[in-house]
């Protein structure tokens, strides 16, 4: 869900860049030096995971996974996603320098919203609440991202309204898949390594 270079107008690009700078400053400030390997490895994991083809109908989609990123990293998601997107633009030329700010905001802000909404609900003992909120987290993260992509386009020009609607509608299947996969992923992590879900705030301990 990258917006290409050269599409958006100056005010939109500037707003995106400004929010990214501020968000990254907060994220880096909250993150101590000892968490650098952790945040970086999560960032590379999501880089790799976002290249997985998930079959849907006759074709396949790539996952966005920003719901899970938000849950696992909190504010550190800002630098992590910025780095992952920059690497994508250097290695694959998806998106680029000027749209980097907007693309980062469109992915990270929904991740943070999900982090604050579902962070506690997901760690509850009750399987129903935990599973339901994990699904909602994955669904909502992609939904908000597609809405924000739409808003970025519409603020650039009224002519983009139809494209924006298409972006949101086309991502509905992705939202459902992401919801299902996030739910399974959270169940798996809770079973195998419960402490990883609270890791955004836990102090680093040696092995």
């Amino acid at each position: 869900m990258h917006i290409s270079e050269g599409v958006l107008s100056a005010p939109v690009l500037l707003t995106g860049a400004a929010i990214t700078v501020v968000g990254c400053a907060v994220g880096l400030k909250k993150m101590d030096y000892d968490r650098i390997p952790q945040v970086a490895l999560m960032s590379s994991t999501f880089f790799v995971a976002s290249l997985i083809h998930v079959p849907i109908g006759p074709s396949s989609v790539h996952l966005l996974l920003n719901g899970v990123i938000g849950l696992l990293l909190g504010w550190a998601a800002f630098p992590a996603i910025l780095v992952a997107l920059t690497l994508q633009s250097i290695l694959f030329q998806f998106g680029g320098i000027t749209a980097l700010g907007v693309n980062t905001v469109n992915v990270v802000v929904p991740a943070l919203v999900c982090f604050y909404m579902f962070n506690y609900a997901i760690r509850r003992e009750n399987t129903f609440i935990s599973l339901g909120s994990a699904f909602a987290c994955g669904f909502l993260a992609v939904f908000l991202t597609s809405i924000m992509v739409g808003i970025s386009l519409v603020f650039t020009g009224e002519a983009f309204l139809e494209v924006s609607k298409l972006v949101v509608i086309a991502h509905f299947p992705v939202m459902i898949i992401e919801g299902i996969m996030t739910a399974f992923c959270v169940v798996f992590l809770k079973k195998v390594k419960p402490e990883i879900l609270g890791v955004a705030h836990a102090p680093i301990t040696s092995l």
Binding site: I52, P55, V68, I177, C185, L189, K193, I196, I204
Partner: peptide, 27 residues
């Protein structure tokens, strides 16, 4: 559903491995 479940577990496993690796790197 089996596919989605397996792929989600795959992603979970990647997250887990990277988390453990990051702790080893830090140490």
């Amino acid at each position: 559903l089996h596919t989605y479940k397996s792929l989600a577990y795959l992603i979970g496993m990647l997250i887990l491995k990277s988390y453990e690796r990051s702790r080893r790197i830090y140490n």
